[in-house]
Write a protein that binds this DNA or RNA. Structure first.
Length: 88
RNA sequence: UCAGGUGGCUGGGCGGCCGCUGCGUUCCGUUUACGGGGCGUGGAGGAAAGUCCGGGCUCCACGGGAAGACGGUGCCGGCUAACGGCCGGCGGGGGUAACCCCAGGGAAAGUGCCACAGAAAAUAAACCUCCCGCUCGGCUAUGCGGGGAAGGGUGAAACGGGGCGGUAAGAGCGCACCGCGCCCCUGGUGACAGGGGCGGCAGGGUAAACCCCACCGGGAGCAAGACCGAAUAGGGGUGGCCGGCGGCAUCGCAAGAUGGACGCGGGGGCUUUCUCGCCCCGUCACCCGGGUUGGUCGCGUGAGGCGUGCGGUAACGUACGUCCCAGAGGAAUGGCCGUCCAUCGCAGCCGAAGCGAGGACAGAACCCGGCUUAUAGGCCACCUGACAUU
RNA sequence: GGACCCGUAGCUCAGCUGGAUAGAGCGUCGCCCUCCGAAGGCGAAGGUCGCACGUUCGAAUCGUGUCGGGUCCG
């Protein structure tokens, strides 16, 4: 059960890294979607302070499990996802 | 104590660390613009939801009358800016009660429909049965003629109900009661209620069938709309109509210009039509091509919240005091931890302790008043019924 | 922000306007046919008509409310 899905794309014209969030209607109503996005946002904020990335665009997609995932585990998910796409 | 009814409130509390955002102030980078830091302060809901009604606001249209169409509302009185909302009554229905529910105008304006069953489903009629007569007396069956609509049967519903009298049998034929209709009186602003008289039953149901009556209703929506700036363009095509046409006079070589009388002729808009009237005349429709998604305002002092007094049965109104209370860009109000209070689970029940789980429905997008829907749990007040005690 | 449409058998749809039997095709099951299967023939099962309340003698159909799904315009 994944905590999140990460998409990454190098920027054509290098600049600061950008992050977008996607939580579809399948996940739940507005409250659930908002909360899911906020947890992803907080995890990205904390993690990218310690290991910055280069000129890439990141998209974080929230899933059902994102809402109830323990926060430290969610951050670990994000770190392993960054390793897999290789944008360290 | 238990069961129930009505109305209202609440919608986890406290603390710590790291963040987001509006405003104010201050400092720094680079003076503006902008960015960053510090400090202070504010930061979702009772439904923010559905978008079912009613308004504010903004733009567009706007001259009056009549008829009509469409949509909505529908007992009475009041409240309200308004409402299909709310309050108080009336009538009907349910409940032992507190109390709850009701689209609740008109069926003698007209049209339609009422399956099956049944004789008959709404100008009425008569299947079985009942009664009388058809030379006399008795019996039976049938037929014919007549009386009548009480009884049987069918149906959701059968042309007032059941009772007494009456009669050959019957019938509002007569009588009282009930129902119904009309008239009058009394009370009430009214819906309506109470009473009296008359009629002798006419008028089945359905209007959430068409319809009739009364009342209400311009269109669009903050992506409304206003300002500033940038860029591009200052367009093209097709069609309709118009700027008039015909005819006359004068000037002119002509094209054309001017003139006023006559005849004929428009289009579009203002309400669907009509009538009167008004406005516009290079305008309308469609298509092609080009540009724009930047900023600011609108944007929160409002039919505003809270408290107290007064008027009113109430909805509500009013006076005084006090408060300023989210507003951004598709969108901030978050993440983690500790603790407490509720809740649930851990042995079938009760109690205690411990451990664990873990916060209902749900996120403002111009604003307001309602309605409807979702919602774990908790609290308060009043009332009803039963039991117990005094 | 506005305008609409649809919920009926496992699936796709009729029936609704104009009220009284809930139907069709495919699918499923059983039998026949065949050495077996397909096709074909015969038969059967299978339905809260999204939900609630109401109108009516009677509701899939009419009215109101509500839930879910979908479409279009800006």
């Amino acid at each position: 059960m994944p905590g999140l899905v990460l998409q990454a794309l190098p920027q054509a014209e290098p600049g600061p890294a950008r992050i977008g969030f996607t939580v579809t209607k399948k996940v739940g109503n507005a409250v659930i979607r908002n909360r899911t996005r906020r947890r992803l946002k907080e995890a990205a904020r904390l993690l990218l302070q310690t290991r910055p990335v280069g000129a890439v665009d990141l998209v974080l997609i929230g899933r059902d499990a994102t809402r109830a995932r323990p926060f430290l585990v969610l951050m670990d998910d994000f770190a392993r996802a960054l390793d897999k796409v290789g944008v360290a």
